[in-house]
Design a protein around this nucleic acid. Structure first.
Lengths: 156, 156
DNA sequence: CGCCCCGATGATATGATATAACCCGGGTTA
DNA sequence: TAACCCGGGTTATATCATATCATCGGGGCG
């Protein structure tokens, strides 16, 4: 094995820090820890699950500690909130974390619990078009699809 | 005035009771009350707001009382949950509450707070297609669009 | 230097949303 | 009758999220 998983995460964190800095934000220790926990979890994580883990590093961490970090990470496009789950996932759109952020969709597998991120222009266009027909001016669309992922379907 | 608003709601409730019965369910007093409150509110309502109102009729109502009723009403397609708001709205698709229920979308106005229900086949098709490309088998799609409704745009 | 501002964090409290666990009574049915 | 399910009561707790005020440290500036 040439790379340990920690290396991959460390690289992602460094990239994230750069991206924040470029926007005038700072990926502080707390924020970095929370992001690392989310990336490391490999799936959707609740705020209090993060809090429990964070307490291993920072005994004094409180809910608000986590939520402040989550807010920052969301504002910077590093994580997404999955509304159906009240949970958070790492953003998998590598690199440019700014110009899309509006036409993102999620595929939630009911079997294995994984959440895949997708960016499909066709969906975004269909939403825009349908909303526009009623005179509605869309700002942001939450699209979360539940079902069975390819792996689980094959395994079945 | 030939019809009071209460009449319209009463008719909707009776229709709902029939629809439930046809599926082997029972629209009990509690469930009927909760549905009436949601319809009467004319917009998204939180579970605890419903609880407060329900307590006027049933002093012993507890959170779980409301949530059980909400679960039943959702299973029977009489209401929808708006994930972004953690709130519930009455289903406006009159009549046949069964064969769609999968391709429904919501338009949430940030100005006036109204939620409009939409059934757009184009969106459903785009979601299906995009998900299918990754081998994902969709079950249900949550589509909630936030923005400004036609009325609020005109008024601006 | 001394001062001020501001962003990040600490500390505490509270509000809001949702489910778990257990029991009980009434109706159906084997 | 016994076994069972469904609807509901009761209590407790888990989870999600925000409000408020205090503190601390760095950077700009007189």
């Amino acid at each position: 094995m040439t790379k340990k998983p920690g290396d991959r995460i460390a690289r992602q964190l460094d990239q994230a820090a750069e991206a924040c800095a470029a926007k005038g934000g700072r990926l502080t220790d707390i924020r970095r820890s929370v992001l690392a926990l989310i990336i490391g979890s490999g799936g959707p994580v609740g705020a209090y699950a993060l809090l429990d883990q964070l307490k291993a590093e920072r005994a004094n961490a409180a809910p608000v500690t986590v939520y402040r970090a989550l807010d920052f990470l969301m504002e910077n496009g590093l994580i997404h909130k999955i509304e159906r789950l009240n949970a958070f996932v790492a953003c998998t759109e590598s690199g440019d974390h700014e110009h899309h952020e509006h036409s993102v969709q999620f595929l939630i597998c009911r079997k294995c619990g994984t959440v895949a991120e997708m960016e499909d222009h066709g969906i975004a266009a269909a939403v825009s078009k349908a909303a526009g027909r009623t005179g509605f001016r869309p700002d942001h669309a939450t699209v979360e699809v539940e079902g069975t992922c390819g792996s689980c379907t094959s395994a079945a």
